[in-house]
Design a binder for these strands. Sequence first.
DNA 1: CCCTATGTTCCCAA
DNA 2: CTTGGGAACATAGG
Length: 258
Amino acid sequence: MPELPEVETLCRQLRKTIVGHTLLNTRTLDEKLENFSELENHQVISVTRRGKNLLLSFDNGRVLVIHLRMTGRLLWQEENGATPNYTRFIMTFPHGRIFFIDPRRFMTITWERTFPVQCGPEPLPRIDPAYMTGRGKNRKGPIKTFLLDQTVIAGISNIYACEILHLAEIAPMRPVCSLDAQQWQRLLSAADAILNKAVKCRGTSISDWRDFNGQKGTFQNELRVYGRDSLPCPRCGATVVRCSLGGRGTYFCPECQT
DNA sequence: CCCTATGTTCCCAA
DNA sequence: CTTGGGAACATAGG
């Protein structure tokens, strides 16, 4: 669930809350995660985002890279309260603490030395279409799968890929190399529009996504195809279809997406 | 019991 | 070397 807009939302909230503050204590509650006590008593210098990764820089030169994968969440708590279920890691600051929550335990927390992962360019601001035609040359696979490839573009996953292709009026199964210049243009404009709007909405709370304060986002109210199979397409009225591409649920309008 | 789920990485085959 | 398909990771919910 956490894609670029969700991670960007957390990034901004985290930045406002912890930059300039000293990390007093860390606690690892999952043996899959390392011990990070080396960061204790060091100040947070910056919080940034790269694709779906959150980067926390500390004043000892270390950078922590957090990836939430499928079900990871970060939750801020100022009052001393109960530890939420599935908490895997805790960071305590003078004015509150951060719970790293993850039922499925896919979340990763690593040092900078394992970074940069191969990460394509950020879709915001808009990517140059020439880059996409270059990368997409000779690619026979479906455009939707291509959009999910983090080494091509950083930060897009299933929900936003479906929404972007719908706005761009491009069918998800179209071979990458079949897109013309105008379609690449439309695709990149659509990515820019959808992702910007989703950031403004603080993400899509279709199941368990919550922001740093436990609040839902609102982009689920803006979805035009994702999760809407057998409902009418908001643009042309035809029935939205669900199919499987690369093993993932894919929603599109067979009428106006070509 | 079965199937599905938001992401990534690894293995393998063409 | 590149590309693409599928399984694996761990768990909850319908």
